[in-house]
């Protein structure tokens, strides 16, 4: 555990809680892609199956349970409790275009051809692109609520911090995981355009809206 890893995890946790609170307090999931949230729930489910097979630490187990629990709570709020406010017409990204190639890739490129290992790889690949339906939705409507941009910023910051964590681990522990690193770089790059808008607009007190 190093400072980048810890702040990365906390940033991830902050993102998840910001989104839950935003939906809960406003009683609305307007502007939120339910498809991205389903993908994240799928990511956590397929990655944390090792909860049943190995114990790493209390911290590790607790965080995994919190992430999974929050992910399903978010999906429940969007598709059940506040379904009436869900903007399905704008959430039109075709997720099969992500899940099918990612599934194929995880079968082809993995560390070991075993069910748990393939599912872990699937979750890593899927996480790297799971935000695309949300970004697509924002580009379609041309705007995002400020609280939604805070959520996205924390989520992007988390993976960027993990990159520093991996550099740290390479230097001080001498090992790296190519699958996690390549997927993590892809994931972080997808946020770059958003980071730019966040810094130049949202942090200056303006609403995030895209030019028509």
């Amino acid at each position: 555990m190093n400072i980048f890893r810890l702040t990365g995890d906390l940033s991830h946790l902050a993102a998840i809680i910001i989104l839950l609170l935003k939906i809960w307090k406003s009683r609305s999931c307007a502007g939120i892609s339910g498809k991205s949230q389903i993908l994240f729930a799928l990511v956590f489910t397929t990655r944390y199956l090792d909860l049943f097979t190995s114990f790493i630490s209390l911290y590790n187990t607790c965080m995994k349970l919190i992430y999974i629990g929050c992910a399903y709570a978010t999906v429940y709020l969007i598709y059940a409790k506040f379904r009436a406010t869900y903007d399905g017409n704008h959430d039109s990204f075709r997720v099969e275009f992500l899940v099918v190639p990612v599934g194929g890739l995880s079968v082809l490129i993995n560390h070991d051809f075993s069910p748990l290992e393939i599912l872990w790889t699937f979750s890593i690949y899927l996480e790297s692109v799971a935000i695309l339906p949300q970004l697509f939705m924002i580009s379609k409507t041309g705007e995002a609520e400020t609280i939604t941009t805070h959520y996205l910023f924390c989520l992007g910051l988390y993976r960027a911090l993990y990159l520093f964590n991996w550099i740290w681990r390479f230097y001080f522990e001498g090992f790296f995981d190519m699958i996690a690193i390549v997927a993590g770089v892809v994931q972080t790059v997808l946020y770059c355009d958003f980071f730019y808008l966040y810094v130049t607009k949202v942090l200056k007190g303006k609403k995030l809206s895209l030019p028509a």
Partner: peptide
């Protein structure tokens, strides 16, 4: 043997 080196991560 930990096949995926970063299995202790979230």
């Amino acid at each position: 043997l930990v096949l995926s080196g970063f299995k202790d991560e979230l």
